[in-house]
Design a protein around this nucleic acid. Structure first.
Length: 273
DNA sequence: TTCCAGGTGGCAT
DNA sequence: ATGCCACATGGA
């Protein structure tokens, strides 16, 4: 099996990357490494810090050769983006985001496959993370190929009832309908109007834009971000418009990354809110 | 039993 | 435009 290593990575931490809610297909192993798949490849990734200051380390990818790394993983992990610079920029905004950055210092926004992202976040609505993961995996296992979620055409060809064994609940009909729309009209038709896809509302659309289209200014507002905005920034619980406007003004083009730091911070730190 | 989980569509104001 | 509420499922 091929192994590929990258030395001297900064602003990188597998827990931060895979636990900030952007992806559902990476599972932590007992040794701290992660096994997962993307673009039809399955690999194991492990990361070790080089020194005590924990600001730099080495990534090893088991199951990838140099070619796969250059072609897939380098871009997927967004290794060409300077997160140090982004963090420095965001830290200036306020103390709250500064604390969040300190807590999730190794977050990177993965460049995920657009279709898989659409499928994943349609499934994610009003659902919890273990069930989301199980649903996506089962969907890939039963109807997909090479570990991928089923293609647009495959899903478009199914009836919602055929997805019943996957236990996606009412989301199955969203998935099939969205697949049919894209199959009919093409991805481009929905590139800037994702909410026209059946089952895609503002929150899911923002997740797709951020994780599947790498639109770094999109700021998905879910229950956790609502919580942060409410308890730490003082917004009324359901003032989504206010929150969105604030995010745009304060974080601008870096809104999506700010959202990930905030999400990770409120989701996993012992911050009592 | 009821509530909740990375919400949305449908329908009534 | 805004406010409800049903919607599948399974775990706490």
């Amino acid at each position: 099996m091929s192994i590929y290593s990258v030395k001297g990575l900064k602003d990188f931490n597998l827990d931060h990357i895979f636990d900030c809610g952007q992806c559902f297909r990476w599972e932590k192993q007992e040794d701290g490494s992660y096994i997962g798949q993307a673009f039809g490849r399955q690999v194991r990734m492990s990361f070790d810090y080089e020194n005590e200051s924990l600001d730099c380390g080495n990534l090893t990818i088991y199951g990838s050769d140099r070619n796969d790394f250059e072609k897939i993983w380098k871009s997927y992990l967004d290794l060409d983006t300077d997160y140090g610079k982004i963090k420095k920029e965001l830290e200036k905004k306020d103390k709250i985001i500064g604390e969040a950055i300190k807590y999730g210092s190794g977050i990177r926004i993965l460049k995920q496959d657009l279709w898989e992202t659409i499928v994943s976040f349609i499934i994610s609505q009003n659902n919890n993370i273990p069930r989301i993961k199980a649903g996506i995996n089962k969907l890939a296992e039963v109807f997909g190929e090479d570990g991928n979620v089923p293609t647009v055409e495959k899903l478009a060809s199914l009836e919602p009832e055929q997805l019943e064994p996957i236990r996606l609940g009412y989301r199955a009909k969203y998935l099939v309908q969205a697949a049919r729309q894209i199959s009919e009209d093409g991805f481009d038709r929905y590139y800037d109007s994702l909410t026209e896809l059946y089952g895609v509302g503002p929150k899911v659309a923002n997740c797709i834009a951020l994780f599947g289209q790498h639109k770094m200014n999109s700021f998905p507002i879910d229950v956790w971000v609502k919580r942060v905005m409410n308890r730490l920034y003082g917004f009324a619980e359901n003032d989504m418009k206010g929150m969105a406007k604030f995010a745009e003004e304060r974080f601008g083009e870096l809104g999506g990354i700010a959202q990930q730091y905030l999400f990770y911070y409120v989701r996993w730190s012992d911050l009592d809110i």
